[in-house]
Amino acid sequence: MDESVVVSPDWLATHLEEPRIRVVDVRDPWEYDGIGHVPGAVSIPFESYRDESDVDRGTLPGPDAFASLLSEVGVTPDDTIVAYDDTHGVFAARFVLTALEYGHDDVRLLDGDYSAWNRAHETTTDAPDPGSAEYGADPLAREESPLVGLEAVEDALERDAVFVDTRERGEFEEARLPGAVRFDWREVVDDETRRLKPEAELEELLSDHGITRGREIVLYCNTARRISHTYVVLRALGYEDVAFYEGSLTEWLANDGEVETGAV
């Protein structure tokens, strides 16, 4: 697993005191304040970087809004960010995707979540005083971004791309993109450890679903939250040809896109 994308709790514990390591907690503020958090972590709640009004990039907040969030907690573009939640990483993965899209070079997902961290490492309810910074977002050019829109998805349907639906079975059977395979994002998580399954097991699991390095992969769900986790996992495993349909099924249905229904 590529540590430039996903890091273990032990890795974070070892590097936690380094000045350029900045830990971001994306849980609700009451969890951060009342339950505790990773020492030194700053609070950037999930809802603060999700904006339904951004017509160009779906639910992304926009580069200026995101830059303001990071400036307020003292994060700079040169920092290594490690994000976590307490929901197996799915909300934190959305933060990772957002930061990458807005040009942050080094942002990583904590393998596991707060509960996984709490089993072996210290927590605190003390809030740090990180100061402020002048963060400048530098959004990726369209040709560099993994995000794709409606037209690109329509084109990919004409090719041998594998469309990966990361939702639950009932959602998949109600409506899905033509030819899509269902790969529930939670399949990669070990329920006992709350961390990702071993790399060899992940590779076998993906292959069983037809998700291989030799194929073009297009991810979607309903509103692009769950595919953030799958995208980060694939990136950590070294998959390169992975597209991220930000509009997902919500946009597809709004544009009367063709769907399939029923069990497979």
Rank of each mutant, 00 (worst) to 15 (best):
A92C: 08
S145V: 07
D113M: 14
D105A: 14
G89F: 06
L249E: 05
V38K: 06
E101Y: 04
T14L: 03
V242L: 05
G103M: 00
G179Y: 06
T59C: 12
L177W: 04
A127H: 12
L147V: 06
R20Y: 00
A41K: 11
Y231P: 06
V242S: 07
G89A: 07
E201K: 15
E151C: 07
T230K: 03
E203S: 10
P29E: 02
D184Q: 09
D28M: 12
G149R: 04
A161V: 11
G214V: 15
V23C: 01
R20G: 00
G257V: 11
H37Y: 12
V7G: 05
K197R: 15
A41M: 10
T166H: 02
E201I: 01
Y220N: 11
V233Q: 13
W30K: 09
E174S: 00
L97E: 11
H104S: 00
T261V: 12
V107T: 03
S43W: 14
V181R: 02
A254N: 14
E203D: 10
A141I: 13
G36I: 08
T250V: 14
R50W: 12
A65E: 02
Y231N: 04
D64N: 05
L70W: 02
E171H: 02
D85M: 09
D86M: 14
L177D: 00
L234D: 10
R22T: 00
D28W: 08
E154S: 09
S248L: 12
G149D: 07
P130K: 09
C221M: 04
G238T: 09
G62Q: 06
E143L: 13
R186P: 00
V38S: 07
G170E: 05
D10Q: 11
D113P: 07
E52I: 15
E201G: 09
P39L: 08
V153H: 05
T98I: 01
D2M: 11
L109N: 09
H229E: 11
A180F: 05
L12D: 07
E18H: 01
L97P: 04
V38F: 03
V42M: 09
F172M: 01
R22D: 00
E134C: 11
I35G: 12
G247K: 09
D190C: 05
P178D: 00
V90C: 09
T76F: 03
F183T: 03
H229C: 09
V82L: 06
E187Y: 10
R167L: 06
E151P: 02
G62P: 08
V218M: 05
H37T: 05
E258Y: 04
E144C: 01
S53M: 12
V153S: 06
G58N: 10
N222C: 08
A116F: 08
A161W: 12
A180Q: 03
Y84D: 08
F244G: 12
L253D: 03
G74Q: 03
S8F: 12
V188M: 12
E144N: 10
D25H: 03
R119Y: 01
E151Q: 14
L202K: 06
I217K: 04
V264D: 09
Y220E: 05
